[in-house]
Design a protein around this nucleic acid. Structure first.
Length: 212
DNA sequence: GCGACAG
DNA sequence: ATCTTGTCGC
């Protein structure tokens, strides 16, 4: 696969300047979408699950399958997964007010992880929910654990159950929004409900697709 | 050159 | 992410 790493990095540096850290009025958020991708060899299965907010009741989901040629390179995940996910988002019958993306947002080497990337491209508020740290350092601050990138506090670490989850600012969301979401996005699992559901659907479809 | 490294 | 058996724990 021909993939220009340096060009991709330059694009991220340029687009990162357009990321907004402004506060989102969560009182006006009616729907959130969870996004995730699973793979069966070359076939990528992108899933977008729509849920009500703050009830977190599932409304519908969209599955988009397609060949993925871009390799996984730490820091460049969006170039591999964003295409399928953006298509899935566009196929939802209702436009979500907030996206919960599997991966990081501004807690990224160039402050432009997949959550920021998808949020900016779709012009939608977004947050990242990752299962491990990619960039930055975790700093204890009273009762909370913050993810600091240079002089920016871009996310926080939460733990509801077995594993820790790294929540980060994607686009058009503030750290205070993240603090609220760190409580309202979790329901029955150790992952945010939108992420959990998207992951489950993606893996189920992958299982079916795997034996063909 | 060495180590780190979302999914 | 995916490949994989049994195994530990709620």
């Amino acid at each position: 696969m021909i993939f220009d790493v340096e060009r991709a990095k330059r694009l991220q540096e340029r687009l990162s300047r357009r990321v907004s850290l402004n506060d989102l009025d969560l009182g006006k958020v009616r729907y959130v979408a969870g996004l995730d991708v699973s793979y069966a060899r070359n076939l990528g299965v992108g899933v977008a699950v729509l849920l009500t907010y703050p009830q977190l009741d599932p409304v519908e989901y969209v599955v988009v399958k397609g060949r993925v040629e871009v390799p996984y390179i730490p820091g460049l995940l969006a170039f591999r997964e964003a295409p399928l996910l953006i298509k899935a988002i566009e196929l939802l019958s209702i436009k979500p007010d907030l996206l919960v993306v599997d991966g990081h947002g501004v807690t990224h080497p160039r402050r432009f992880g997949i959550a920021s990337h998808i949020g900016l491209v779709t012009d939608t508020a977004s947050v990242g929910a990752a299962k491990s740290l990619l960039y930055g350092r975790v700093v204890d601050s009273g009762p909370e654990r913050l993810i600091v990138v240079d002089d920016l506090v871009g996310g926080l670490v939460v733990k509801y159950g077995r594993r820790e989850v790294y929540l980060s600012i994607g686009h058009r969301v503030s750290l205070d929004n993240l603090r609220v979401l760190s409580k309202t996005l979790f329901k029955h699992h150790d992952l945010p409900e939108p992420t959990y559901l998207a992951d489950r659907v993606a893996k189920e479809v992958r299982a079916v697709e795997a034996r063909r």
